[in-house]
Amino acid sequence: MFISYFGKLKGKKVKLSESEIRAIAMQAINELGDNANPELVKEVVEKAIKNSEYVPIPETQSQTTGRVILTSFGLNHPGIVSNVTKVLSDANCDITDLSQKLMGDFYTMIIMLDISNSPKDLSEIQNDLNVVAEKMKIKVYLQHEDLFRFMHRV
């Protein structure tokens, strides 16, 4: 059985089994005896954990992939694709698919992107795109791909 130790051992969360914790406790008792104080205990525990093979718990990563979907629509006029894609290339986003349709005066454009190599995060790119959307009087939405996968794929 494993339990998680959520101490601040060099800023990392570690996972230890009960027997390992018992071994560390016994080691600390043997080494320190009556001299135990918080600093010394911390030192012995840190040393013991460093010497044992502990499993660090990965920090929670909510965003599984860097794949996002951009949807844009509005009244068609020149410069929309270039303005939108400029923001994306400035942010080092990789366009993996792009398609667009015209329905009368209106256009709809959908771009699949990979933002994992971008120095910016999703909300920063959204902010940049909002500036363009306002200037061009169009709508631009940027949403993580998981949403579409969950809703349309079983």
Partner: peptide, 17 residues
């Protein structure tokens, strides 16, 4: 494309309209 045009627009319609 991995998703149909209609699928993506359906989601946008749900959240925005």
């Amino acid at each position: 494309m991995q998703y149909d045009f209609e699928e993506i627009l359906e989601t946008i319609k749900m959240t925005e309209i």
